[in-house]
Design a protein around this nucleic acid. Sequence first.
DNA 1: TTGAAAGCGGTACCAC
DNA 2: GTGGTACCGCTTTCAA
Lengths: 341, 341
Amino acid sequence: MTTMQDVATRAGVSAKTVSRVFNDDPNVSPETRERVQEALAALNYRPNMLARRFREGRDSAIGIAVPNIGDPFFATIIRSIEDRAVERGMVVFVTTLGQDATNEPARVERLMRRQISGMLIAPVSNDQSYLEQWGDETPIVFIDREPINFAADSVVVDDEAMARVATAHLIDQGHRRIGFVGDTTSLVTTRKRLDGYRAALQLAGIEPDDSLVSLDGSLLVFGYRSPADAVAQASALLSVDDPPTALFSSNAQCSMGLVRALHSLGRTELGFVSFGDFPMADALTPAVTVIDQNAEGLAELAGNVLFDAIDAPATRATPSVHSLPLHLIPRGSGEIAPASV
Amino acid sequence: MTTMQDVATRAGVSAKTVSRVFNDDPNVSPETRERVQEALAALNYRPNMLARRFREGRDSAIGIAVPNIGDPFFATIIRSIEDRAVERGMVVFVTTLGQDATNEPARVERLMRRQISGMLIAPVSNDQSYLEQWGDETPIVFIDREPINFAADSVVVDDEAMARVATAHLIDQGHRRIGFVGDTTSLVTTRKRLDGYRAALQLAGIEPDDSLVSLDGSLLVFGYRSPADAVAQASALLSVDDPPTALFSSNAQCSMGLVRALHSLGRTELGFVSFGDFPMADALTPAVTVIDQNAEGLAELAGNVLFDAIDAPATRATPSVHSLPLHLIPRGSGEIAPASV
DNA sequence: TTGAAAGCGGTACCAC
DNA sequence: GTGGTACCGCTTTCAA
């Protein structure tokens, strides 16, 4: 690899002068500049970025950690942040956390160790205390879920309120027996959505019934395991005494598997609302009513917060929670009146 | 930040000894080792990765460039490669190329400049000659599409053959008027799929009719613009003289928008095959028959090729094209007999 | 077993 | 306007 010294030798100048020319320092005479430029071109000089970053002491890269890149919600966030990063001449590391909370510290720290300029995390574990040792040198912003046991800015949505809106929407259509399907309650978002669901029921004078609630492992069953498992699980939920006439699915991955199962079972007449939009939701029969999670909006806000923190070093005030309002998109699946009982 | 020298001072040894302890070099006396370890822990020493990589002269990271992270096909590839990378203690840079071919060189070179260990590219432009200057130092593997004007290994599928299979499938169901919807023919994959489509027609004694072919901009219309535009475009395609009774969509992004439009138009009775599976394709009514692009398989093969190249430096023999067989998944949309004419 | 010195490639600082 | 020198943090080389 050609070094600045190689170029300097060829041009008959010092390495420092080559550095000046290469970095457009005005303090170079035109003749020298020309000679150096000729040498740069002739030797096809390209800077050793590793050396440069070493000198700078920080990598102009940002890290993004998400549960699952395949989820359109997270894919949108990555794309949006990457565009912002490119504008600023930065690059992006991506890492996947999966569903298993135990991977999170290792995967995130692998990036933090690299002295990146900033980190964006959509966490899956319930304890971010492992970040304590990193937070002082690297700005960290949380997206979709707030950190636990660690102080950092976060950009989230009001899960409880939106779950209330979704549930109330089904109640407004006349449903009284409404099921809840969600991932494990060890996720704070699931807990809040469950709270919102129960609050909406109680507000309508409906007694919450835990036999209508399917948690823990639902994401695995509906999102990752075989369609047959999903059908079995859905079937069981619909077979309880006084079965539900509507379902509220508390995340998009679950929704996709659950909707697929309902189609298999021929139970598409059920009321249905999904927390989180998903591909083709608007083309199904009936089209699926969703709470739009507004990934674009979240990503933009998170980008502002993160890049501001990068630009304003050592502000690190008390962390703030930025909450973004969401909207329900009625499409049909929520508007079907329940079979009269 | 604590340096090795800091630790050395505290332990009363030289920096080199700290290095030895930290890197598990056996040539350290137990007592010294203990003292150093105590100092390492006390000062919470963490190595400066920038310095280490600078010394090594190469970044143990791999870059991945894809047209669109939101496409489940590419998301799966990224996830798969990232898992492999993590096993090897590497990290992953991701960059998005978009549909616009002009971004590709800048976005890819931004990563190449960083002296990464390897690069995986699903290209969007028709000229990879810009990689000439990088290919010697960094292994590059292409996925989904072969490079043009540049010699490198690639992992692809037989687009022409699979497009023939898809089209023949529709012909077998009795369709004679079959439309083709695809992205711009400046993409080699689209050209090959169009060739396969025409070959299948001719094999069946059907004269290809360009009024049934919708290219250039279809991806934009069906994949990215408003649903209304998609409906209009689909409507136009279905309104030609002697209109099609079936459609072959040559990529998944197009398929999603096109299927949505067909549902809006109430034209779900059309025969339909998609090159590339997409989310919820199996839950639609009718479920959509697809050519499964086998992202997992492609990613695994590409990972093998790439990591082998990283491990066996300077082999760089004549590049080979690894082709992966695909399968058609019949689901219903291809099996509907055309309305009798 | 341990340490001193040199060097990776670039840039800041200070002379000239 | 230009060049010398030191230094970023770590590891290799060689000597003690």
